[in-house]
Amino acid sequence: MVRPVTADEDAAGVPCPVCRTPNQPHRRFCRRCAAPLTSVAGPEPLPWWRTVWPFRRRTRAGSGRLTRLLVILAVVLALCAAGFLLLPAGRNLFEDTRDKLGKAKPVTPARVTATDQLPGHTADLTTDGLSNRYWAASRPGASVTYSFGKPFRLVDLIITNGASKSAEEYARQARALRVDMEVTAQDGKVHRQEIDLSDKPGSQTVPVGISDVRKIRLTLNAPVGLTRGRGIALAEVEFFQRT
């Protein structure tokens, strides 16, 4: 409905978009046709690349909320993964998994010393690669220390107990059924592990899994067959690192 315009109303002002009648600035509706004077802004035009298939898509209601939820979920998962790796238990599990999936290669110590050894049976014979030569100690509690030039991840330890892999030679010397291992890491932290050995000739593998190893000490205990004229024999010790 169109109402008549009185003469005393100001003829200057914002023109109505419908009937073009001037209106005072404070008015929200036209004084003649009551049409709204403030137009609703339409959506901004899309960039040209959004008008080309396959980018030509309509934005669905709530799509922004979904994006925010996905971003929050990604951040939470990243924080959980970081916490898992930083915690000692999570870090150890991660390293153990890498040990199982990776390959191992032998590593040779730079120096070998012992607290006790019989003549002709020095401690360095445990790393010469020959299982028919051995280190012999005169008493239980004797230890051998292996020092390495640079830190490494110790995955496995292979011990050939006794004097030889040969059953006949094996029985001629005493053997240690328990070896106390002390591993010193790069940061000075000491890891201790008690190793029980079988009283039989041949190699025995000991899983370890310690990082940044610099020094390993093996102490012979619980000997069997130790009599006068015999020593506690240890034929070979092999160390393996993760590649």
Rank of each mutant, 00 (worst) to 15 (best):
R91K: 15
L197H: 04
S138A: 15
M181Y: 10
P119N: 02
L37M: 11
H121M: 01
K100Q: 13
A176S: 11
V14C: 06
M1A: 14
T184Y: 04
P88M: 04
T122C: 00
P15C: 08
V40D: 10
A137V: 06
G231H: 00
R20A: 13
D99Q: 06
G64V: 09
R27C: 03
C19H: 10
L154H: 09
E182Y: 02
A7G: 14
T126I: 12
A82N: 13
P22S: 03
C16Y: 04
W49M: 09
R57T: 05
R172Q: 13
D96V: 12
I159G: 08
A7Q: 15
R230V: 02
S63E: 00
T160V: 15
R139A: 00
E182N: 00
P223Q: 02
I216L: 11
G231N: 06
V237C: 07
V190Y: 06
T205D: 08
T122A: 13
A233V: 07
R230A: 06
F148H: 00
E182T: 05
V183T: 11
K200S: 01
S63R: 03
G64P: 01
G13H: 11
L125T: 08
M181A: 11
T59K: 15
T59A: 15
W53E: 15
P151A: 01
W135Q: 01
T67Q: 13
D128M: 11
F29D: 00
P201D: 08
P140M: 09
R178P: 05
V183Q: 03
R133N: 08
T51D: 06
G83S: 09
A137D: 02
P54W: 02
D180N: 07
L226H: 05
D99Y: 02
K105D: 13
Y170R: 04
D96Q: 14
G62F: 08
A81K: 09
K103R: 15
D96K: 12
S164A: 12
R31M: 13
R133I: 01
R192S: 02
G229H: 10
M1G: 12
R242K: 07
R172E: 13
P47K: 03
R230F: 08
L220G: 09
V155R: 05
F148W: 07
Q24E: 15
C30D: 07
R60A: 12
D124P: 04
D8I: 15
N161P: 02
G13E: 12
T145V: 04
P223L: 05
R57V: 12
R31K: 14
C80V: 14
V208L: 10
P140E: 10
L77K: 12
L85T: 00
A235N: 03
G129W: 00
D116L: 02
L85R: 09
T160C: 11
T6V: 14
A142N: 06
V112M: 08
T145F: 06
A81W: 07
Q193I: 13
K150E: 01
R91Q: 14
H121T: 06
R60L: 13
S166F: 13
W53F: 15
A171L: 10
P45I: 06
R230I: 01
L93S: 13
Q186N: 02
T227E: 09
